[in-house]
Nucleic acid binder design. Structure first.
Lengths: 184, 184
DNA sequence: GACTCCTTGTAGCGACTGCTACATAGTAAC
DNA sequence: GTTACTATGTAGCAGTCGCTACAAGGAGTC
């Protein structure tokens, strides 16, 4: 592996940490370069353009997210929706996961205004969410499996969005109240 | 009312329509000026700076949103959480409201990265949401009223966020599945 | 040493950003 | 008619954006 590839890996690592910390706020080429400890000139030597940088870094972040999700709740046994929601809510509002969810909300907003490469990233992450829920959801044959999975994702993402908006730490109470709202 | 004030009103009207249509994608001064049918020079004659423009326009949008919400579901009689969620979900995923919810997600993201004047706008709109839910929610004395209201808002906002991400029109199925997930 | 290729710094391009200085046209008061 | 104030256009500032041309260092080959 040449210097270029080694440096690429290092840079992606540092930028993933940077974006988890700062969201999409500090993502100009010069700001990214400073965060990665290289010059902006070299950033465009390692990557072809800014979109490729963001796509690569976000793929790394998405990979870490997928690892954590897979570890958080096992696929077996499948859970009824209410229990799945409770466990997922408790997990995603935890201190470690909030950075991911906050970045996720920002990425969705960027995608909604068509900013490359975010629409593609959103499609990929969203597919991962759906598969994750689908693999863990115990649902009667008669129910709408896709619709229910989408609803569960919506609930989890909604918690993150409201969490971002609230200066006081309402997440635990919100998650607890949510647990009471959903029933098997 | 002088020409300046009259023009201000016209500009705010047009910009509110523009931002509901385009979100935060086209909000440079020159783009806003084009949408309002004036020169960017005049925009900064009617308003002191860009933050004041955005704050004024978003206040107008928030006002329209509040009107629609107030009309959609009456305060009396108060509804049990599950029924309130069902009715609010059906309403906010409707064709007219989706523009509002989409813009709302973008505004939350902008606020989360500290971009003026969005944090203040988010605080104001969020307080409106809380009051709206609180006024319509029939909840036992023993329950956590604030936490439950936050959870309901999270569910509604989550529907909007997932709606944005999905190219196919999954909102109705998602709303229906959600209705089955929540119970009185 | 000459040649070649990978790596890196310097410097800057053209486009866009929010914003402003300056001049001018119009209008009302006296 | 002069004065004063409001309203509007022209032009451009300094800064940031993504990106690139160009040159030079460094290492290996012959």
């Amino acid at each position: 592996m040449g210097i270029r590839e080694t440096q690429r890996e290092t840079v992606v690592d540092r930028l993933a940490a940077h974006m988890l910390e700062r969201g999409l706020a500090q993502t100009s080429l010069r700001q990214l370069a400073a965060a990665a400890g290289v010059s902006d000139r070299m950033l465009l030597y390692y990557f072809t353009d800014k979109a490729e940088i963001l796509a690569t870094v976000m793929a790394r972040v998405a990979g870490e997210l997928a690892l954590r999700l897979a570890d958080a709740i096992p696929e077996q046994p499948p859970l009824k929706p209410a229990e799945l929601i409770r466990r997922a809510a408790a997990f995603t509002t935890g201190p470690d996961m909030r950075r991911f969810m906050r970045l996720w909300v920002e990425v969705v907003a960027a995608a909604s205004r068509g900013e490359a490469p975010f629409p593609a990233i959103v499609a990929q992450v969203m597919a991962g969410f759906r598969a994750w829920v689908d693999a863990r959801m115990d649902l009667p044959e008669t129910a709408d499996r896709e619709g229910t999975a989408a609803a569960i994702i919506a609930i989890i993402d909604g918690l993150a969005l409201v969490d971002i908006c609230s200066e006081d730490d309402i997440a635990p109470r919100m998650a607890a109240a949510l647990g009471a709202l959903v029933a098997d």
